[in-house]
Nucleic acid binder design. Structure first.
Length: 260
DNA sequence: ATGACTGATGGAATCAGA
């Protein structure tokens, strides 16, 4: 089973690029973030024509997440991260496909830091950590996939010293990510490529992609039950170099679920 | 430290992104 995560930065303007990528790579599941579209503007029919069933949680202008599954309907388990009934931002959706629970998340950016946006980021992170613990306790095979807006280590930033005070790289943010990992999650891309510089995001500014001035902020975390099934983890970086690209590249894992 | 680029909204200029 191949599961991808892709922050598409606007499904309205990115639909041709999304369809082209789906057609080429045919992932079994795809988690999308930053739909930037209200619920009724999601291109359900176009995706169905491409062979994908979808669930999504839209929002006007910002945020928005979706889970696609090829040839079958994702079974929605949850929409919205528990822990704050006042949180109206569409950043979390969860579905089961073939016995695997997949959480699609878009963790808040948090800039500028410090400030209320950074506080929201850290609070959201705490809610994620609490919910992730509950998922692990359930014993279900789980993948946490999405745009975490965290570079876990200095290896994940083209120029760490420039980012130390940024919400994506501040000590509090990295510490929260490490606490999440310490529950027992496997950072799939890092596990398959230890010590390697791999990025999933390149800024639109200053020709960042051509300079390879990137960040690794899109992650797929595997529960212990799934870690042994991991066969590959890669970034489709060429997608970032195409016409009208998202600033993120699709990131994916291959799991061997035979004989579970 | 700052700015540069892009999408959504709304129909210009501003916000947000990372």
């Amino acid at each position: 089973m191949r599961i991808a995560t892709f922050n598409i930065n606007g499904i309205g303007s990115r639909l041709p690029a999304l369809l082209a990528w789906l057609e080429e790579t045919r992932p079994d599941m795809a988690c999308l973030q930053e739909l930037k579209a209200p619920q009724e503007k999601f291109p359900e029919a176009a995706l169905r024509d491409a062979g994908y069933h979808a669930i999504w949680h839209g929002q006007k202008s910002w945020n928005g997440v979706a889970i696609l599954a090829r040839g079958q309907a994702p079974q929605e388990v949850r929409r919205g991260l528990p822990g704050d009934d006042e949180d109206g931002q569409s950043r979390y959706i969860e579905a089961a496909v073939d016995g695997v629970l997949v959480a699609c998340l878009y963790l808040p950016n948090g800039n500028p830091a410090p400030g209320p946006k950074f506080d929201y980021k850290l609070q959201w992170f705490e809610r994620l950590i609490a919910h992730a613990a509950a998922l692990l306790e359930s014993g279900t095979p789980v993948v946490l996939a999405g745009d975490f807006n965290v570079m876990p280590t200095e290896l994940d930033v083209y120029k760490p010293e420039r980012w130390v005070n940024d919400a994506l790289f501040r000590p509090e943010t990295r510490a929260a990510f490490q606490r999440l990992l310490a529950q027992g999650w496997c950072d799939a891309l890092r596990h398959m490529h230890p010590g390697e510089r791999i990025y999933t995001f390149w800024d639109y500014f200053r020709n960042a992609y051509a300079r390879d001035a990137g960040l690794r902020i899109d992650h797929l975390l595997l529960s212990p039950a799934l870690a042994g099934a991991l066969r590959a983890a890669e970034v489709d970086r060429d997608v970032r170099g195409r016409d009208k690209p998202s600033d993120h590249a699709p990131t994916w894992i291959e799991l061997d679920l035979a004989g579970r």
